[in-house]
């Protein structure tokens, strides 16, 4: 099955800036891997439920109890940029 990959769109969704050259090379590699991965389509799976957890368990919850949060200075010490108790990032272009 020939696989059509809009690599620029995929890279944009994944927020990874790629050069034209990188995109071409990833597109080719993804094609090969997906070609192999497409073998999954050969198996008859009609009526088969997908598995998203290997163990059949349900309902793992916690009680609504407050536990201590992290120390803010420790948290912000790892931030690339912080000011006045906030993380700081460049402006957004989206107008929301």
């Amino acid at each position: 099955m020939p696989i059509d990959i809009d690599i620029a769109h995929v890279a944009k969704l994944a927020r990874i800036e790629l050069s034209e050259q990188d995109m071409a090379s990833y597109r080719a590699q993804l094609g090969v891997i997906l070609d192999h991965a497409a073998k999954v389509q050969a198996l008859p799976t009609e009526g088969v439920q997908p598995t998203s957890h290997p163990l059949d368990m349900v309902n793992a919850f916690r009680d609504d109890v407050v536990t201590p949060s992290l120390d803010r200075d420790e948290v912000l010490s790892q931030a690339p940029d912080a000011t006045d108790g906030f993380f700081r990032v460049p402006p957004s272009l989206d107008n929301e």
Binding site: A37, A38, V40, T45, V48, P50, T51
Partner: peptide, 10 residues
């Protein structure tokens, strides 16, 4: 792809 892979997993 993903959905089919999860069924293969089953």
């Amino acid at each position: 792809f993903y959905g089919q892979a999860q069924r293969v997993r089953t």
